[in-house]
């Protein structure tokens, strides 16, 4: 047997390499209002307290494997979350780097996707800066567990105020409902376990300027200025820029 020279670490292709999105400075090509040209945000770049929220449900009595659960969850994401047609999946599907539009006012980028999980990263202007990971795994008893885990902070002072007024609770309800729908799809019923931890209670006051990208404010401004844009288009004889 001949000795093979060791492969330098940099030359080995890591197992997770194809699962991550490529680096992008800004999100391009979706054409979405408050998404196009916006930077993806990590949980460290937002304004409010940082929260880790974990929601999980045991799929008792089903034979579905974690990979089968995640495959269905990814394919039927709009229906299972209740976002419906408001969640616009790009033509290529929810693959790493893809950008999906949300409710016509914001969107998410697929940061990571493998057989047993997928993660969204939010852009500037979204209510939260951070990541949400949907995954499934087998527990020690061999039972499949579906899980949604968020690591987020409110993106700006207005969203942080809204968190106190009920946005926080509304978000919990969304993911609890989603998990119940995932379980129901596989014929399982169960209680959603919820664990909410404040990872960093501090507000990052120097990030107050994030409000300039606030999707709610900009969408409202966009709506009220629509007649002006229509008049200008008529006057100049130009047509609406098509969204790609």
């Amino acid at each position: 047997m001949t000795d093979q020279p060791p492969i330098p670490k940099e030359e080995r292709r890591p197992r997770d390499a194809g699962h991550w999105a490529r680096y992008v400075e800004t999100l391009e090509g979706s054409g979405g209002l408050n998404v196009e040209g916006r930077r993806p945000m990590s949980p460290l770049q937002g304004f409010g307290s940082m929260w880790q929220k974990t929601f999980r449900i045991h799929l008792t009595g089903t034979d579905a494997t974690p990979a089968e659960v995640v495959e269905v969850w990814r394919k039927r994401f709009p229906e299972m979350t209740g976002f419906g047609s408001g969640f616009r999946v790009p033509a290529g599907g929810l693959v790493p780097g893809a950008v999906a539009l949300l409710g016509g006012i914001s969107g998410v980028m697929v940061l990571y996707a493998d057989d047993e999980s997928f993660t969204y990263m939010t852009p500037e202007g979204h209510p939260f800066s951070g990541w949400i990971t949907f995954s499934a795994y087998e527990d020690e008893d061999g039972e499949t567990v579906a899980q949604a885990q968020l690591l987020i902070r409110a993106n700006d002072p207005l969203y942080e105020f809204m968190m106190l007024l009920g946005l926080n609770a509304a978000e919990n309800i969304t993911w609890q409902r989603t998990l119940r729908r995932v379980a129901a799809h596989f014929g399982a019923e169960g209680r959603v376990e919820t664990r909410v931890t404040c990872v960093d209670p501090k507000r990052q006051w120097r990030r107050y300027t994030n409000i300039r990208h606030n999707a709610l404010i900009l969408s409202a401004l966009h709506a009220v200025t629509a007649p002006l844009r229509r008049i200008r288009r008529r006057a100049t004889g130009t047509s609406k820029t098509p969204r790609t």
């Binding site: 460290l44 880790q52 990872v199």
Partner: peptide, 21 residues
């Protein structure tokens, strides 16, 4: 370390938050 997934990156962010605090 030869594998990190997105949950793993979130764990590192958690450590960073603790360190910053």
């Amino acid at each position: 370390v030869d594998y990190i997934n997105s949950t793993g990156i979130a764990l590192i962010v958690g450590l960073l938050a603790r360190a910053r605090a």
